[in-house]
Design a protein around this nucleic acid. Structure first.
Lengths: 231, 231
DNA sequence: ACAACTTATGGTTTGTATGACTACAAGTAT
DNA sequence: ATACTTGTAGTCATACAAACCATAAGTTGT
């Protein structure tokens, strides 16, 4: 039984996912605590093995679902991590992925079979992780910083409906510097990627801001016309 | 003997390299013709297996040297390519790399043990390649286009000393659109990354242009001050 | 009802990079 | 000497961004 299962996976390649979320102005990452094995009780990135008949993309999506219940999210490969000594037990190369999720859509996360706990951590507060996972997280973060300036992917970390200030705070947190509110508004609105809704934010103790949503179709059309997102 | 050799390599992971060169205004890629095996006499990217005690970076550098004699060049990982059916014989994932080389520094390229020929092809004229190599080339090209706008890596494709017009032609070829000479000059010179040499180009049948060289140290210093290369 | 406060949102001003273009310099070829 | 080619310098109008200021639209407390 176990033998049969083993025969269906590749034995020297794994997947590890950096799952980013955004909450109360802070960028967070989802980690799992291993239930057993040599890393028992230690935190690391969610990951696992690849079936022989699936691509790494498919494996990453499957593992995300199995380990956390998350599916249908923004997911992109980072690259392969291959230092010979990265995994102490045997020679294993891992393919890193990073995902952006709308955190509020996934509240009741439950650890999968191999994890005893799953929890969000502020990226700025993550210290040691198992193997080279800390390094992979760093690469994921750099990739996110780069991508968010070139492509409108930040919306994947926000609710469907958001205010411009929320969006600005997201950019400030990820890029690590402060921005000017009026200038930010002007710049993002001039791109015509956002649709203003007939709706305002609620339960705030000040003037309510207009809610916006990102418009993927418009973005596609603009792309075809040679539009270049840039922040 | 063969058995022993096999024991030292990973059996389900390979490396493939997209090696770019620039010649007479055209972007080129280095391909090898397989000497035997199921792809005998077909063209593909140079590549090979990974030793158990080396990283993919090390393997890519080693293979580059073994297969073509090239070493010490700009080399960066693209990503893992993992479609289950990408390699017809068995389940193999490949890690793609791309290299930028100063073509004129490597004139007498000789095929390695497993290749019968090695040759340069204009990227625009490459048609079918073995396995998914055509796809990997496409990813490499997209990466190059993206990178060259964000980082001063174009110089890796030019001789040590070059004219501004050569550099502009490089950008035009890679990015696929024409530029304005005076404006290009102004923009690149204002960055202070280039040092004008006391030397002019020779053997041209018109006014000779000043030769420049790229200044990596200056670039490092500027980076530390928050400079952002952008084209 | 009013003031104090907070955030949203709209403008203004100024400096600068860029694109389009003109002009001239410095060579070569005939 | 003239035509021709490429290198190099400069001009001008425009767009944009950074740094502000100002007002609008709400909330909270008195």
């Amino acid at each position: 039984m176990a033998k049969q299962y083993e025969a269906t996976i590749l034995d020297s390649i794994t997947i590890d996912c950096v799952i980013f979320g955004f909450n109360q102005g802070a960028l967070e990452v989802l980690l799992v605590k291993h239930a057993d094995g040599i890393s028992k009780d230690k935190w690391g990135l969610p990951g696992g093995w690849i079936f022989t008949d699936e691509s790494t993309d498919a494996a990453a999506n499957r593992l995300l679902l199995e380990l956390t219940g998350i599916k249908d999210v923004y997911l992109e490969q980072l690259r392969a991590f291959s230092e010979p000594d990265r995994f102490p037990v045997s020679r294993v190369i891992t393919v890193g992925y990073y995902a952006l999720i709308k955190k509020q859509d996934w509240t009741g996360l439950k650890p999968g079979a191999t994890a005893s706990e799953v929890a969000w951590f502020k990226v700025s507060e993550v210290e040691t992780l198992i193997y080279d996972h800390r390094h992979i997280l760093g690469v994921g973060l750099r990739r996110l910083r780069r991508r968010i300036k070139q492509e409108p992917i930040g919306f994947n970390l926000l609710p469907e409906k958001f205010t411009l200030l929320q969006l600005m705070h997201l950019y400030e947190e990820i890029l690590g510097y402060e921005m000017d509110k009026p200038n930010f508004r002007r710049k993002i609105l001039r791109m015509n990627l956002l649709t203003a809704l007939d709706e305002k934010q609620k339960d705030v103790s000040h003037r309510a801001a207009t809610l916006y949503k990102f418009n993927p179709e418009t973005y596609q059309k603009l792309l075809e016309k040679g539009f270049n997102f840039e922040f």
